[in-house]
Computed example of a mutant assay.
Amino acid sequence: MYGKCGMVKKARLVFNLDGMEIRNERSRDVVLWTSMLGVYGKNGHYKEVIDLYNEMLQEGIKPDGIVFLTVISACGHTGQVHAGVKYFESMTNDFKLNPGPEHYSCLVDLLCRAGELHKAWELLNERHYNGIGKCSVSMWGALLSACVESGNIELAKLAAQRALELDPQNGGICVMLSNLYAQFGMWDEIVRLRVLIKQRGLRKDVGCSWVQVTM
């Protein structure tokens, strides 16, 4: 409750009080630690997420998948790419946890935030071809969005193609790709994209701008 209200210090006070209830044989379990990590993460206290995770390990608490999701996300917001990859690998190497699609999405987001687009592409391809599991549209969409921001046309095309293979009716993917083409004046590509959208009967318009003229 305190965390959702942005009252981080009060949330931490409750967390600390629970840890002091030794006489009642109460101890902070992984659920409570996860809750406090989530409070820090949702309120932008990313450094505190990492510090609390290390404190959690010192207390002998084994982290679960939700903990790693919060920690990797915090690394993405603080630009700690190598640390985020290390935590991702630690899931399987140290704690025998299998990363789910949400962990891969978080790692892709981390790499994209740091401009490591090709590493994100390699990660998704490895998952796609090695039978680890299907990549979701959101994973390819995160890569596509980063490509649009950085102006990486070739990688954007590949990411959009993979996303549309999974969801041919996803108009948002076409819009992002069209926006990238417009940045570089690639009008022929936009025309081809409009034809594709029309053929598939997508409802979302592409690259539309409005100008109000007053007389």
Rank of each mutant, 00 (worst) to 15 (best):
R113A: 11
E116G: 05
E116R: 15
E116T: 00
L117Y: 05
K119T: 01
A120F: 01
W121R: 09
E122G: 00
E122V: 01
L123S: 09
L123Y: 10
L124A: 05
E126M: 07
H128L: 08
H128E: 15
Y129I: 14
N130W: 03
I132E: 14
G133H: 09
G133N: 09
K134Y: 04
K134A: 15
C135P: 01
S136P: 04
V137H: 01
S138G: 02
S138R: 13
S138Q: 13
M139K: 03
W140M: 09
G141Q: 07
A142Y: 01
A142T: 10
L143R: 05
L143G: 09
L144H: 01
S145P: 02
S145H: 13
A146I: 04
V148D: 07
E149S: 15
E149F: 09
G151W: 09
G151I: 12
N152V: 09
I153S: 00
I153P: 00
E154I: 12
E154Y: 07
L155V: 08
K157M: 14
L158I: 10
L158G: 00
A159Q: 04
A159F: 01
A160R: 12
A160P: 08
R162Y: 07
R162F: 08
R162E: 10
A163V: 09
A163F: 07
L164K: 08
D167Q: 13
D167R: 10
Q169R: 04
N170E: 15
N170P: 02
I173F: 02
I173G: 03
M176N: 04
L177C: 12
L177E: 06
L177P: 07
S178G: 15
N179P: 01
L180D: 03
Y181T: 09
Y181Q: 09
A182N: 13
Q183L: 13
Q183A: 11
G185A: 09
